[in-house]
């Protein structure tokens, strides 16, 4: 029944929602009028987007929503979170149910064009990997011929999987289940030999979702990374200013890390003589006006959410249970790919 409702819901949302946006005006005005940002997040991926035991949403993706709310409204708490499965998310965004997605979505050409979306800056440079039970004795993804693979539908993962096996002349049997919780359960119960997802999600699943009685050490993530998965927030076409704000909010967090501005020292940094820092934090006005938001936008973001490095370490890095290495997601000055254009 769920799915019948889902199907008709999508149709209704597509009709009604699209009809609605015709008159709603700019997304930014709607957010300001509402006083809150509606943000589509994952249904539960530890470290990236998960409601904690108090029902408070935390994660790297959630921090993007909070930062955007801090930029536009001045308060990082003014966010309404809408958990969306991989299947639901695009329709929800197209139909105007959410203002933006920050939902482990991979940026691709089709999504940027045919689906009518714009992407923000990359939140996390990811790549698809495979996780298997150690008992299988598999050391490489090239040995997976004939395997049964658990995968979530409606993802780039599903397509990369088929491409990889075709390219390597191997066959596989997919087990495709919509809810990520059910996919994991199927994998851990042994229904599948392999679980494939973005490697960040694999590490997250291995640590946070392994059932009692099994240990994370029973599972290994194979060394092959078979795809590029730049995860970025998504906005629909139609409001360029809002898209700019999201992208520059992300750049501001990276820029803040680069210049050593943290949530702890932001007040002292505001007294700095460095012209770059003065411009970033709005002590020298101009940047906020150009973007169409409060001059203290970066101050609000860093004070309330933190810079990119803080957000990373807190949610998925060394201060979290996932302990993911910065790797590609380190600053460009430290050998990574996180590089923000200058705020000036």
């Amino acid at each position: 029944m769920l799915n019948k409702f889902l199907a008709t819901g999508i149709a209704a949302a597509a009709l009604v929602g699209v009809a609605g946006t015709a008159h709603a005006g700019k997304d930014l005005d709607a957010i300001k009028a509402r006083g809150s940002l509606t943000c589509g997040v994952p249904t539960g991926v530890a470290g990236f987007g998960l409601a904690d035991s108090q029902g408070k949403w935390v994660g790297l993706n959630v921090d993007v929503c909070r930062a955007v709310a801090a930029t536009i409204i001045g308060d990082a708490e003014k966010v309404k979170y809408v958990p969306l499965t991989a299947q639901q998310r695009f329709t929800a965004l197209q139909s105007g149910e959410v203002d933006m997605l920050s939902n482990n979505t991979t940026e691709t050409l089709t999504r940027d064009t045919a689906l009518g979306f714009d992407f923000g800056a990359v939140t996390y440079y990811d790549g698809q990997g495979f996780m298997v039970n150690k008992k299988l004795g598999v050391k490489s993804a090239k040995e997976l011929n004939g395997a049964t693979v658990c995968v979530q539908p409606g993802t780039t993962t599903e397509l990369n999987l088929a491409d990889y096996f075709r390219a390597n002349k191997m066959t596989f049997k997919p087990v495709v289940i919509e809810k990520v919780e059910e996919v994991r359960a199927a994998f851990f119960s042994g229904r599948c030999d392999v679980y494939t997802n973005d490697s960040s999600a694999l590490y997250s699943t291995r640590v946070a979702n392994v059932p009692s009685g099994q240990s994370p050490n029973d599972y290994i993530v194979l060394p092959e990374i078979i795809s590029k998965e730049p995860l970025a927030p998504v906005m629909r076409h139609g409001d360029n200013q809002f898209v700019d704000i999201v992208r520059w909010t992300q750049y501001a967090m990276i820029e803040a890390e680069e210049y050593g501005i943290t949530s702890k020292n932001v007040d002292e940094m505001a007294k700095s003589d460095n012209p770059v820092i003065k411009r970033i934090l709005g002590v020298t006005p101009g940047m906020g006006k150009a973007l169409g938001v409060d001059e203290k936008w970066v101050y609000n973001v860093v004070k309330q959410v933190g810079n990119y490095g803080e957000s990373f370490e807190r949610n998925v890095g060394k201060d979290s249970i996932l302990k993911i290495d910065r790797g590609l997601n380190n600053l460009w000055t430290k050998g990574g790919l996180q590089y923000a254009p200058p705020i000036r």
């Binding site: 299947q87 689906l115 397509l159």
Partner: peptide, 10 residues
């Protein structure tokens, strides 16, 4: 559902 997701043509 997968087709909708890949093509966006709900």
């Amino acid at each position: 559902n997968v087709t909708i997701n890949q093509t966006g043509q709900a």
